[in-house]
Amino acid sequence: MGGYLARRLLSGALAILGIVIVVFVLVRMLGDPAALMMPPEATKEEIEIFRHAYGFDRPIHVQLVDFMRDLARGDLGRSLRHDEPVMDMIMERLPATLKLSVTALVVSLILAVPLGVIAAIHRGTFWDRATMVMAMLGQSVPDFWLGLMLIYLAGVRLRLAPISGYGGFSHLILPALTLSAFPLARTTRIVRSAMLEVLGQDYIRTARSKGLSERMVTYKHALKNALIPVITVVGLDLGALLGGAVIVETIFAWPGMGRLVVQALDNRDFPLVQGGVLVMAISYVGVNILVDLLYSIVDPRIRCN
């Protein structure tokens, strides 16, 4: 177990290092921040002075070594556009991102598990078909479309919830619903097929033949096992959501990580892009390692592999 964890941590660290280097090089291929940071009437000399002041005129490997050295000291640098420490800016956005992604996942789970179970138990009935069609639709609708529709219907027409912004719990409703559509649809389908499979297993029939009540069988034995594959997928979703949901954040004016880094990318704010992507990558890798550990606790068979 300890060796496995060490291996996972090592490969995770390698992946993060790789991402840092890729981002560093990629943003520098996008062109020069100087052109965007200077007023339109700036002359070539003025732009050169700027480039020199920020060190963008040095060879890229020298810049990379410098960046790595600062990184090792925990220093992500300062945003070019906002002249603020990148770390502070990220820490301001992270809570909003966490709030939105966790809520969206919780909503999707609260709805998906019962729906999937119903569909599985009543396989082939109207309930099953209806649930599956809904799930299919949920996977077929682009999120920006769903978001815009929710704004007009729930926000403007029915006035059920605030349309945009970051405030109390009510501000979470529309963005969280939009963001939960895809995981909801997918998790419903996974729960259904996992339940179907588990219900056909020998031990369930053993449980039944022991005279346990059907509810007991379903919830205590079947559901518990059927949820194992759900953990992986939810983990992947959470990892991805922590990277910020750019489109949903933009539509609902949610002050999260995705918007921060996309704006930084638009502004060629190199340090901010680097720092943002680094934090997203760490969240993703971290969540995945956690999921694997959880997995091996829930399902002891994994550990042997």
Partner: peptide, 22 residues
């Protein structure tokens, strides 16, 4: 029974989300 409990679960979740907005 199962359907009812599950439906109640879903309804509660939706209501909880909507209520604070009203």
């Amino acid at each position: 029974h199962g359907i009812r409990t599950s439906l109640i679960c879903i309804a509660l979740a939706v209501l909880a989300l909507m209520a604070s907005g009203c």
